[in-house]
């Protein structure tokens, strides 16, 4: 990752400082999977889309930070208790705002993210359509020749 950047930045981003760390064992479900593989799979997918608030650009599924562990515990316990991944995401968003979720929802603040691909598709289509139009012209020339 980048940095001559990439590596450097990444390094800075992912390093675990030794100081200021607690001595508590991780929460029960921070490093332990759920017994039900289907639920664990739901939890795993969800965790990959939640931001570790103490880290730089990492999901809670990629981090050793204690808070990421506690968030994984929350996710797994809630999933195990029968909540759907979307409910868990909503619960976290209601605490931390959209920032905590890597999956932007269409909203007043995020619509450009979803409009741009459509604009690009239309643009791409237009460019290609104009080429097709041109081909017909060329064919006519070929026919004449």
């Amino acid at each position: 990752m980048i940095r001559w950047l990439i590596p450097m930045l990444a390094a800075l981003a992912f390093i675990q400082p030794v100081s200021a760390q607690d001595r508590m064992p991780p929460a029960p479900y921070a490093y332990t999977q759920l017994d039900d593989p289907a639920l664990e799979e739901q939890a795993r997918e969800l965790m990959h889309t939640l931001r570790c608030l103490k880290c730089q650009s990492q999901s809670i599924a990629d981090s050793d930070a204690p808070m990421a562990g506690d968030m994984r515990h929350q996710v797994r316990t809630r999933i195990a208790a029968g909540e759907s991944p979307d409910q868990v995401r909503e619960w976290l968003i209601s605490r931390y705002g959209d920032y905590v979720s890597y999956e932007p929802q269409v909203s007043a603040t995020t619509w450009p993210l979803f409009v741009l691909p459509i604009v690009l598709l239309v643009l791409a289509g237009t460019v290609l359509m104009r080429r097709i139009g041109r081909r017909k012209g060329d064919d006519a020339v070929d026919d004449a020749a």
Partner: peptide, 11 residues
């Protein structure tokens, strides 16, 4: 396990 911390949106 930071449960209250998470519940009140403290990071």
């Amino acid at each position: 396990i930071s449960e209250v911390q998470l519940a009140i949106g403290s990071s």
